[in-house]
């Protein structure tokens, strides 16, 4: 059975940029080209992005 994929645009929930997605799968992790946030594809129809859990960093401050 073929894995379902989707292509199109979705909005980054961090910086609200339009992110172009090409043949992505559900739960795949991608990165916003604008702000660098790691994003999870949470739905294919419509294409929906959510922030993926990221390790917090305080940069030593």
């Amino acid at each position: 059975m073929a894995v379902q994929t989707a292509s199109g645009q979705a909005q980054c929930p961090e910086c609200f940029a339009d992110v172009t997605l090409n043949k992505v799968m559900q739960n795949e992790i991608t990165q916003c080209p604008g702000c660098g946030a790691e994003l999870e594809i949470t739905a294919l129809e419509p294409l929906t992005l959510a922030l993926a859990p990221q390790e917090e960093e305080d940069w030593g401050e």
Binding site: C15, F16, A17, C32, G34, C35, G36
Partner: peptide
């Protein structure tokens, strides 16, 4: 809202050759 601020920065600078918006979740200089 934060979305409005992003929009303001993009409208002001997306077409500027020497201004870059740097507000990043990854990378060495965020």
């Amino acid at each position: 809202q934060e979305k409005d601020v992003w929009k303001a920065f993009r409208e002001a600078y997306n077409n500027e050759p020497f201004v870059r918006i740097v507000k990043e979740k990854a990378g060495l200089y965020r």
